[in-house]
Design a protein around this nucleic acid. Sequence first.
RNA 1: GCGCCCGUAGCUCAGUUGGAUAGAGCGUUUGGCUACGAACCAAAAGGCCGGAGGUUCGAAUCCUUCCGGGCGCACCA
Length: 644
Amino acid sequence: MLYLQIVLLHLESRIVAAVSQHVLIRYGLSIPITVEQPRQASFGEFALPTAFQLARDLKKAPRAIAQELVAELPEIPGIQSLEVAGNGYINLRLDREAFAAAIALPPPPPPPAGRVLIEHTSINPNKAAHIGHLRNAILGDTFVRMLRAGGRQVNVQNYIDNTGVQVADVVVGFHFLEGRSLADLRTLVETPRFDYLCWDLYAKVSQTYATDEALKARRAETLHAIEAGHGELAEMGALVADKIVGYHLDTMLRLGIVYDALPRESEILHLHFWAAAFELLKERKAIYLESEGKNRGCWVMPGSAFSEHREDEDSKVIVRSNGIVTYVGKDIAYQMWKFGLLGRDFYYRHLRTYPDGHPLYVTASTPEGATPGISFSGNERVYNVIDSRQSYLQDVVQAGLRALGHPQEAANSIHFSYEMVALTPRTCGELGIELTDEDRARPYVEVSGRKGLGVKADDLIDKLIAAAQREVDSRNEHEPAEVRRQVAETIAIGALRYFMLKFTRPTVIAFDFQEALSFTGETGPYIQYAAVRAGKILAKADSTPALPADLGPVLADEELWQSLLAAFRTDSALAMAIQADEPAHMARYAFQLAQAFSNFYQKFPVLTETNPTKRDFLLWLTAAYRAELVRTLNLLGIAVPVFM
RNA sequence: GCGCCCGUAGCUCAGUUGGAUAGAGCGUUUGGCUACGAACCAAAAGGCCGGAGGUUCGAAUCCUUCCGGGCGCACCA
């Protein structure tokens, strides 16, 4: 069934080849030929704006050129007719019979695979995940699914900063604010929703710093201990981080999000990744020891390395005057490892096996207990899914690679950036968050972990499931409770994932409960519903769907023909979405596909159709729609419930 | 101050990389269920694409400039 899409793609490239060759011979011009979809379906299947492009060079009216082209272009197999439209467009119509016959063609070979790495999620392991993290993970996971469907070999990583200040802050809270020992913490981490407890504690500690200088001094002490990896404070930090990572993995698994490996900062420290990178940076003179000014005694990267616009851009400190590397420095080392440029690797220990059998590895600093023979280093292309506020730092990392003499890798370092998820003032009100008059007047309010201001991921998922459950129960009283529960979950996840994907990456999402809880209109459930209805028809049909031999009369029906075309755009939509690095395009396509099916569903009753050939065709097309809907939803990480 | 992002229907957003009459969803109004399940469909109303210049056959899209909003610009991560 996929062949149809391939046929369309092939046809497009045949048109491009035929037209560009003709233009070259006839006019001696070599121009890029673009093929578009006509504004109105009744115009045909393809449109060529070629005459407009030629008008400049030929100094002739576009319409006249179009007429010339139509008269002189050689026949293109699969194309029935050409006609001039408007003031110079050329519309092409498919040979429908030939097109239908092409269904029998064998499937094409898979596209060449390249090894790519995607890092996403990467939440500080010191508190529960919030909606902003959901956007990151859903965006990353969806893009992974898209790339894999597009033939790429992808490995998925979730970076764990288990030795950073955020973990230290929570340890400060437990130990110095609440006076807990390591033994106390060992029992405490086992209490339910330990991640929520940390959420509140982190906010409390952050606020206490403002008035308590002594506590702030404890933070530095704690961070130091955690980085060194020795002593009670370090053990507390490891305990907290490991436990919270477990919660994050569970939360993401609820959304169908899994990883291949968890690289941890503790191993980057213990295996001295930075030392290796530092030597290389010095050797290539990518950084220098500042001898004067405010950065005296620091190793810095000159501003000109990462900013093309200004010579006097401030240089970026990589190693502090006390000899301790900054976050960016560590990130450069990590990015080098991703490309296999560091000359070092982690050991990998098996951490868990996902329900589908997929193994998850975590990095280790010794070969003890490690699984031999695996590596996640050495990728051709690297996507870092990180919010747009960190674009400055990502630029510095990229500049580091360039300065080290790796322009190729720098160019293949992609900051897959996205805007933040904020809250509408109304949602803040519902959450009982006090707002200033100034905030209330804004269109949205930024979430803040330090202030404890935000919507926890699991709370949102629970709320969505509850809302979906009400709908499911009211429509399906006769179904077993356990199945209803599963259906409600599938719908809730569908709604959430689609909601996070429908916005393009640079758009700030002003999160609103009312909008996110909606199951009608442009939502995940709308698309799931289309797939479920298609499935119902197929289940009730007495025959298996097969394409009838004589399609002439059926394809003459304009609406049916359009319906057929609309069902087979997945591959080209996928290719375009990958090329644009934009999962929202895929989400948009899924919705359009569902709309096309809903349309078809309304206009053409399948099971009651009396003409047997037409009935066979309708049934076949229903099966095609169902398959494409399932496949497309799968790309978005959305499952299809058994009923709705 | 410098850099990046955004400004499109009442609201929330798309706009296939410069193409034909600018599209969806929500909301509003109206019509359609003894059902291949209405979480749906059909129809209507709703637009100086922030303003002004420019580039060209053609601009929501590219350039310049102004206005309005957001986010960055640490020896934090």
